[in-house]
Write a protein that binds this DNA or RNA. Structure first.
Lengths: 241, 241
DNA sequence: ATCATTAAACTGCACGGTGTAGTTTACTTC
DNA sequence: GAAGTAAACTACACCGTGCAGTTTAATGAT
């Protein structure tokens, strides 16, 4: 049980945190304050407050721009308590990153349903990525991680590999080709192209513009990416109108 | 006359600084030290040293990680002299950014030659972008700028618009369609797709991995992008082997 | 050609002010 | 008494300034 504190709101997440497909905005969302009393030790409660505050601060100001004083203030906790839970600023930052990235990983699943038309299947495949792009929590995390790892190539590579869907896409494309539904000679290249078409328009521009695209926007991008992908890799070339 | 100080080397540039197509690695490269005596006042010389040092430091450590003390030390100049030339750290940073970005802009030109086969023309078009990607100076600049602007959306948008080839690509695609050489319904989307195919594989991964790709690597990416682009947008669908 | 003069730029160092990571201490609450 | 709190404190790094003294280069006089 953890929260994603975005700039404007604190959204509650329980299990399938990142899986937007299961998120229901009408579902009850206990406020952070409302949750506080139940079944948590004081220590755990404080720790949770610290984590929430730290996520918010790091995402808003970045690592260097965030001070431990402000975190403790925002968490309504004394600075010493922060240090009782996390031995240093760096440890706090890395534990949070670790945790959030793990959340992303555990929630991801790539669909493959060979009974559906190939176009529809590709759309769903594209939406596995697209679901992340319209999730404010994910975009905030991505901005935080990527702004801090751009000067740390090793860490950047690690994060990249853990947050990308590359290998899963490859597997699906390979299988679809084996089943004669696509004609992909190099699944690695094709997967990069497909993801690249989506990310270059739906991810990076928004990452730097600090905005979150809406469903319609991403749907258009995915549809156009599928069109292009199919023009190149479908069994019999279809020109989509 | 200015230099691009990369992490490992200081490369001399005279006019067509960014235009890798004209760069000749065998051409004489005066060392910075060798150049020092000739025709520059002491003041100009010192200023140049400061700029070189600042570029290197900012690119290696980022804005926050760079101290004016280290810049002065690296430039072999007193700290006071740095402040005589640049009134603050921020001014120094922005003047450098401004200058480098202007260099990029002035060197860019998008080819359009309708006597060449369409595939060849697209390859050249792709290489207009590719030339930047294999240029260490450009990649270092991009890393510096993007790492600092990710928390400043307005500046990021400005930089993006000034460093992207989007509109030029659009114009070329529109013209090629008018001349019946391509069948592009939406030039804006098509330009984004084409550039996206290239950048998502040749730019962003390398930006974060802190590496510079070589010609062969980029050539493969561009060729595969052209293949895909043509599968969707060429007059008569060609399946490239 | 050689020497003095002069202005501008550079040096080196110390210093004020600020921000921040992390620690200590004395006090409170459960 | 275990954990939290508030506030002061240490140690340090950094930006930017002031200043006394030195270098540089150009000018002009001898």
């Amino acid at each position: 049980m953890i929260v994603c504190a975005s700039v404007n709101a604190v959204v509650y997440i329980e299990r399938n945190f990142w899986d937007v497909r299961e998120q229901d905005t009408t579902r009850e969302k206990k406020s952070v304050v409302g949750e506080l009393g139940s079944g948590m030790s004081v220590s755990d409660r404080k720790k949770k407050q610290i984590i929430e505050a730290a996520i918010a601060e790091f995402q808003e100001k970045g690592y260097a721009g965030t001070s431990m004083d402000r975190i403790s203030e925002r968490a309504q906790v004394s600075k010493r308590t922060v240090y009782n839970h996390f031995e240093s600023k760096e440890v706090l930052f890395h534990e949070i990153n670790q945790f959030l990235v793990d959340q992303v990983n555990s929630a991801l699943e790539i669909p493959y349903d060979n009974t559906k038309p190939i176009r529809e299947m590709l759309m769903e495949l594209g939406w596995a990525e697209g679901a992340l792009l319209i999730n404010p929590c994910f975009m905030n995390l991505a901005r935080m991680v990527m702004s801090e790892t751009i000067r740390d190539p090793a860490l950047a590579a690690d994060m990249e590999s853990r947050m990308t869907l590359q290998s899963d896409f490859e597997a699906v494309l390979r299988r679809a080709t084996e089943e004669g539904r696509l004609s992909v000679d190099d699944p690695a290249v094709a997967a990069k192209q497909f993801l690249g078409l989506i990310k270059s328009r739906g991810f990076f521009p928004n990452l730097y513009a600090a905005r979150v695209p809406d469903r319609a926007e991403i749907d258009k991008i995915i549809a156009e990416s599928v069109d292009m992908f199919m023009a190149k890799y479908s069994k019999e070339p279809t020109r989509a109108g």
